[in-house]
Nucleic acid binder design. Structure first.
Length: 423
RNA sequence: GGUGAGGUGGGUGAGUGGCUCAAACCAGUAGUUUGCUAAACUGCCGUACGGGUUAAACUGUACCGAGGGUUCGAAUCCCUCCCUCACCGCCA
């Protein structure tokens, strides 16, 4: 969330940037400023009165020590009077603070200057295309047919065990999935990321910290008996490792990677493009998270994009990189690049990674700070990116590499998979 | 799940109602001293929101796991919850 002090000093800029995100409730900005002024007034009033109470209470202590009982009674009555005036002030203060916070939490992050204007995915800008165009033979089929043919994934039994959208990987399908996870993690570790294996459920504070709450609770699976949320991405547990911590400036950047399954209810969006592995409720993903110095975050964003691009190249998939327009960006992001791979048999681009800079949006919520060289407290920046979301990668690998003899895997996967072909 | 012991600043750890605006030590930091390495000594060393100031200085309030309560006054007493550790039970 944005800092009130920043909004106060840059209210026009805030409104103007929010418009780029097509944010409707611009009036919240002015309401926040009014609330904050009121809060300050009340706080000051409260502090002054409370200070008097504190002084009087100390006096009572010394009066008791001296044994002046009459004066003690008078002083006690004075304090009682002060506390009566304090009562309504603190009630008002609590109300205004709640109001202020509710409004603050509704403001999305400001898009960076680099974000293109636009409202829908068609306004996203293709910044790069790469990888070889793959030529399919005439009787090539989509991955859902290949999955059946080679018995790699069983959706029917997944639905029997759990429900629709829960895939049961099997045999070489399960092994390929494991090989991809292993390869992606190794690739990230080689680039200096520390591997984690975090909990797959998080508490409310963690879901709030990365911005899933209070906005998107409908998109997460919730365990009411314990108040836990199933993670929609490893970003949530990874970033929350450093919640409420004051870091040493020299410990930045912090680079983390983790494999986790991701759980998404897909409420509202289900029914569209759900065939095969295109959209499922539980999928595997290897994630990258960095916590960095604010001066470095856009350089790091470029590095992460480059990192993911090289990974896609190494598995020989045709890809393109999109810079998301204001209207298609997530609530918490300041700048996002999406990666899509080309599914040759479906003749469709599938999103497999999203790399974002959140600037201070998450760290302000989570209070991840460091002391800068002047000894001042400063919020760090966070970034994250997928490397990569597995099901769609698998779909494209199967489709684009199919031949009458089987599915030839990219060379880099051979040692991980233990074979060069699925047949 | 049961019983017990705990949760205090970056770390260790004292503090059972007012003399604690949290001791001491360690780490950190600035300086002094001494040929170097290093040691000794001295000062500084929490966060948030305010007031104040050109900026400081200075200053108010809150915070000792979280939230309530008792009291003129709570780290300290009471209640609820969370977490950690130990043992027991159950279990992969």
């Amino acid at each position: 969330m944005l800092q009130v002090s920043f909004i106060r000093n840059n209210s026009e800029l805030v409104k103007q940037r929010l418009a780029v995100k097509n944010f409707k409730d611009i009036h919240l900005v002015d309401e926040i400023l009014v609330c904050d002024d009121e809060r300050k007034k009340l706080q000051l009033e409260f502090d002054i009165t409370q200070a008097k109470v504190n002084v009087a209470s100390k006096e009572i202590g010394t009066l008791i020590a001296k044994g002046e009982k009459d004066k003690v009674e008078i002083a006690k009555q004075q304090v009682a009077g002060l506390k009566e005036t304090l009562q309504p002030i603190s009630e008002k203060l609590a109300v205004i603070e709640k109001l202020l916070n509710e409004s603050l939490v509704k403001l999305p992050n400001l898009p960076s200057e680099l974000v293109p204007k636009g409202t829908t995915p068609t306004d996203n800008i293709i910044v790069k295309e790469g990888g070889d165009i793959c030529k399919l033979y005439s009787s090539a089929v989509p991955h859902w047919d290949l999955i059946k043919k080679y018995d790699l994934v069983d959706f029917e039994t997944g639905a029997k065990i759990t429900g629709s959208g829960f895939a049961l990987y099997k045999g070489k399908g399960a092994k390929l999935q494991r090989a991809l996870i292993q390869y992606f993690l190794d690739y990230n570790i080689n680039a200096g990321y520390t591997e984690y294996l975090p909990p797959f459920m998080v508490n409310e504070a963690s879901a709030y910290g990365t911005g899933q709450l209070p906005d998107k609770e409908g998109q997460m699976y919730f365990m009411p008996a314990d108040n836990f949320y199933m993670i929609p991405t490893a970003e949530v547990p990874l970033t929350n490792i450093y919640r409420d911590e004051i870091l040493k400036e020299e410990s930045l950047p912090i680079k983390m990677t983790a494999y986790t399954p991701c759980f998404r209810r897909e409420a509202g969006s289900f029914g569209k493009d759900v065939r095969g592995l295109n959209r499922v409720h539980q999928f595997d993903k290897v994630e990258l998270v960095q916590i960095v110095h604010p001066d470095k975050s856009y350089t790091v964003l470029d590095e992460m994009v480059e990192h993911v691009e090289q990974l896609l190249k190494s598995v020989n998939l045709r890809y393109r990189i999109l810079k998301l327009c204001g209207g298609d960006m997530s609530f918490a992001s300041a700048l996002t690049y999406d990666f899509e791979v080309y599914s040759a048999a479906q003749e469709k681009w599938l999103e497999v990674s999203s790399v974002s800079n959140f600037e201070t949006f998450q760290t302000n919520r989570m209070k991840i700070r460091f002391k800068n060289e002047n000894g001042k407290m400063q919020l760090a920046h966070t970034l994250n990116g997928s490397s990569l979301a597995l099901p769609r990668i698998m779909a494209c690998l199967l489709e684009n590499n199919q031949s009458p003899n089987g599915i030839a895997l990219p060379e880099i996967l051979h040692p991980y998979f233990g074979s060069n072909i699925i047949s």
